[in-house]
């Protein structure tokens, strides 16, 4: 591969990832508003573009044109860097997700591990945002976010291990291949439930949206951010929703496996179905309290995940060398 080819590939990959991140966020915000409207006996955006499809575009353009306020009391460097660091993992994560066999920016052989590792960078951005804002709500929100995400990482990892155990690989395409006959959701229902709950908690959505609990913390860690800085947090959140749903699809729902339709279509169908469920939950449930959230994690999810890992290793790998 020549240098030129590498550069061209890089540019294409870069462009594809960023375009996807932006378009996906625009679409998801629109979808969120439409889904919430459906649940709430409303219409949602209708006036801006056909069926309000241009609504989120208008929002995005507006946010670009807003004044960027840097309050006097903030820690300027950190305040400036925080949204960028929070947004950074979003394209990195999207880049590691294969859409179909051989389609996608990359299909790492440690894909599952990579996802877990990179997604935590966003947490750093959140912490920086909360600390640098010099706002008590932001600080509380960041504290909650860090505590919650780190805690939920553990059962998430453990349930992920059960899948890796089944597939014998951390590569997403291998994991999908292992589900050609039966998707793992049937073989590993407990892991699926735990992973799904954890991924909702990781993306800070209801009923685990305590880091940005609107009725308590105004807007949580991004209270002080305006315009595009706020939009970056928004982008990051919706990309994370997509990534987590995509991973649920890849790990449990058989990825792009499916009859008749092309694999990529299956992948997106399943992913957006998961996203729909995530939104459905958000618009139905109230929010947990932070200590209840922790209790639920450490007293319920974690033991369940460990047990599940133990049992599945005995059932699927018991007595036989890997």
């Amino acid at each position: 591969m020549s240098i030129v080819e590498i550069i061209i590939r890089l540019i294409i990959a870069f462009g594809a990832v960023f375009t996807f991140v932006a378009l996906n966020a625009l679409f998801l915000v629109w979808l969120e508003r439409k889904v919430s409207a459906l649940i709430q006996q409303r219409l949602g955006p209708t006036e801006v573009g056909p069926a309000g499809l241009l609504q989120t575009l208008a929002d995005a353009v507006k946010l670009m044109g807003k004044e960027l306020i840097t309050p006097t009391a903030v820690s300027r460097t950190v305040f400036f860097l925080a949204p960028i660091i929070a947004f950074l993992p979003a394209p990195l994560l999207v880049a590691a997700i294969p859409i179909a066999k051989g389609v996608g920016v990359s299909d790492l052989n440690v894909g599952a591990l990579y996802i877990l590792a990179i997604s935590n960078i966003a947490l750093l951005g959140i912490l920086m945002a909360g600390w640098s804002s010099n706002n008590k709500y932001s600080l509380l929100g960041a504290m909650r976010a860090v505590a919650q995400n780190i805690s939920y990482e553990i059962p998430m990892l453990l349930s992920l291990l059960a899948i890796i155990l089944m597939a014998g690989s951390m590569k997403f395409s291998d994991i999908v291949k292992a589900q050609e006959t039966v998707p793992f959701v049937l073989l590993q229902p407990v892991a699926f439930i735990i992973y799904f709950i954890c991924s909702i908690a990781e993306s800070n959505r209801t009923p685990f949206d305590i880091p940005e609990a609107e009725s308590e913390l105004v807007a949580g860690y991004h209270t002080e951010f305006t315009g595009m800085r706020f939009a970056l947090f928004f982008l990051a959140e919706y990309t994370q929703v997509f990534v987590l749903s995509a991973i649920v699809t890849l790990l449990f729902l058989g990825g792009w496996n499916g009859p008749l339709l092309p694999p990529a279509v299956w992948f997106f169908l399943k992913t957006y179905l998961v996203i729909f469920v995530v939104m459905w939950l958000r618009w139905t449930y109230p929010r947990l309290r932070s200590d209840q959230l922790m209790n639920f994690n450490w007293k319920m999810l974690l033991p369940a995940a460990i047990l599940n890992l133990l049992i599945s290793s005995v059932i699927y790998r018991g007595g036989f060398p890997g």
Binding site: Q40, Q41, E214
Partner: peptide, 16 residues
Amino acid sequence: FMLDLGAITPFLFCFE
């Protein structure tokens, strides 16, 4: 009250 507890939809039902 439900809005305070983080559930948004009951609020809209009640207002309807």
